[in-house]
């Protein structure tokens, strides 16, 4: 469909968010998916902003794709996130123990859990020097 490319830091979040949510709206996606998209996008962008380029600077690219499956009549809205930073598979990270109490709970680590729970499908691949994270929602 279309692609946006921006600096891989937190300041790009509002611009990329506007792009993704308006693309979803134009594709006729309503209901519970846009709020999930909103959240998942922030979580993965924050990951790229914190891990991909260390203390250096780099870019992130986000592409929105609508996939129709004529056989099943189902439709999927996917985000593909690309960066050219160090190898980083966020899906490999450990998810925290969500039953621990306030004292035992480490701070952080919940972003990935939200991503894997709220998406219908997600995958990571490293292609050459590029990290590609694909996040799909049934719509």
């Amino acid at each position: 469909m279309s692609t946006i490319r921006a600096k891989a830091d937190l300041s790009s979040l509002p611009t990329i968010r506007d792009y993704v949510l308006s693309t979803a709206r134009q594709a006729g996606i309503t209901g519970e998916v846009p709020p999930k998209l909103d959240l998942v996008l922030e979580e993965v962008l924050v990951n790229v902003a914190s891990h991909a380029y260390g203390s250096g600077r780099g870019e992130v690219e986000v592409e929105c794709m609508v996939q129709d499956n004529p056989d099943s009549g189902s439709r999927t809205f996917c985000l593909e996130l690309r960066d050219w930073g160090t190898y980083f598979d966020p899906l490999e990270a450990d998810t925290p123990d969500t039953t621990a109490n306030i004292d035992e709970r480490p701070i952080g680590g919940l972003g990935l859990l939200l991503v894997t729970t709220l998406t219908d499908h997600c995958s990571y691949t490293r292609q050459g020097d590029m990290n590609i994270l694909t996040l799909c929602f049934n719509v």
Partner: peptide
């Protein structure tokens, strides 16, 4: 309207400090 894991992180940190 909205909360992400960054919000949860702040809430947990606040809860630990208050406790």
């Amino acid at each position: 309207e909205y909360i992400s894991s960054a919000g949860l992180r702040s809430i947990l940190a606040a809860a630990k400090r208050l406790k």
